[in-house]
Nucleic acid binder design. Sequence first.
DNA 1: TTAGGGCTATGC
DNA 2: GCATAGCCCTAA
Length: 152
Amino acid sequence: MGAPKQRWNSEEEAALRTGIARHGVGNWRTILNDPELSSTLRYRSNVDLKDKWRNMNVIVIASSSRDKGRTAVKKTRAAPKNNDHFAAISAVTSDVDGEIVDTKPIASVPNEAWNTSSSKKAQSRLDNIIMEAIKNLNEPMGSHRTTIANYI
DNA sequence: TTAGGGCTATGC
DNA sequence: GCATAGCCCTAA
């Protein structure tokens, strides 16, 4: 995680989250084509987005459902042993939806962000966080990634 | 084009 | 040595 590998900075992560909030999970190509995001993500491929999102979800899932059944990832990789590392993320998740109850994810969200392919996949709590941020920010055209990042 | 599996590099 | 994060390969 040092040199050779292209670490994701907060700008890129925010852009990814914004793209997902706007176009939905799985529409990596669409996200990359978003003029707003393409500048930030121009060095990332759709596979990169997918992989990053996978990593992000692993962290969230591991931190939110550690009790029951990890198995988010195969080898045990997603099973943290110290909560400290996840404190920040857990704080965010629990702040928004507490324990994830289940999900009626985007259906109840009257935001045009999801209209493309909302029902494509089960959304993670991170999506809810983003949607929460967008809703609360209440910006008509969708919130800027930095704004969302700020909110979070 | 997207999703999943696996490998490797890096940090602790 | 273990855990994490990024990248590559392959299948659908």
